[in-house]
Computed example of a mutant assay.
Amino acid sequence: MGFYHSTEALAPRHKTEFWRESVCRRLIPARGEFAHDFDGCLSGQQLGSLTVCRMQSKPHTFIRTDQLARVAPDDDIVAAFFQRGQANMAQQGRTLRASAGDIVLYDAARPFVHELAPESLLLVRFPRQQLLSRFPKAEHMMALKIADGSSLAGLLHGMAEEALRFEARDSALAAQARFAAAFLDTLSAAMELQDVAEGAAAATRHGSIYEKAVRYIDAHLDDTGLSMAGVAEAAHVSPRTLTRVFAAHGTTVMHHLWKRRLEQSFHILSEGRVQQVTQAAYQCGFSDLSHFSRAFKSAYGTTPATLLRGAGGTMVALNQTR
Rank of each mutant, 00 (worst) to 15 (best):
M1Q: 11
F3M: 09
A11I: 01
A11C: 03
R13C: 03
H14E: 15
E17V: 12
E17L: 14
R20F: 00
V23N: 03
V23Q: 05
L27M: 15
P29H: 14
P29K: 13
R31E: 13
E33Q: 14
E33I: 12
A35T: 13
H36N: 04
D39S: 13
G40E: 06
C41M: 10
L42Y: 13
S49Y: 08
T51W: 03
V52Q: 07
F62S: 09
D66N: 11
D66Q: 10
Q67D: 13
R70W: 03
V71E: 15
D75G: 07
F81H: 12
F82S: 04
R84N: 11
N88Q: 12
M89P: 00
Q91H: 06
Q92C: 05
R94A: 11
G101H: 08
Y106F: 15
A108K: 02
A109C: 03
P111L: 10
F112I: 05
A117C: 09
S120Y: 00
L121Y: 07
F126H: 07
R128W: 04
L131G: 06
K137S: 11
M141I: 02
I146P: 01
L152S: 10
G154A: 05
G158D: 08
A163V: 08
R169K: 13
D170Q: 14
D170V: 01
A172H: 11
L173V: 07
A180E: 05
F183Q: 06
F183H: 07
L184I: 09
D185S: 10
A189T: 13
M191Q: 12
M191H: 05
M191S: 09
D195E: 12
V196L: 15
E198I: 00
E198D: 10
R205W: 08
E211Q: 15
V214I: 14
Y216Q: 05
Y216M: 06
I217G: 01
I217V: 15
D222T: 01
D222W: 01
G225H: 13
M228K: 15
E233K: 15
A235D: 01
V237L: 08
T243A: 14
F246C: 08
A247E: 11
A248P: 01
A248D: 13
G250D: 09
T252C: 04
M254G: 01
H256F: 13
W258G: 01
S265I: 06
G272C: 11
V277W: 07
A281R: 12
C284I: 04
G285R: 04
S287R: 15
F292T: 02
F296M: 09
Y300C: 01
T302F: 04
L308V: 06
G310V: 01
A311L: 05
G312P: 00
A317W: 03
R322A: 10
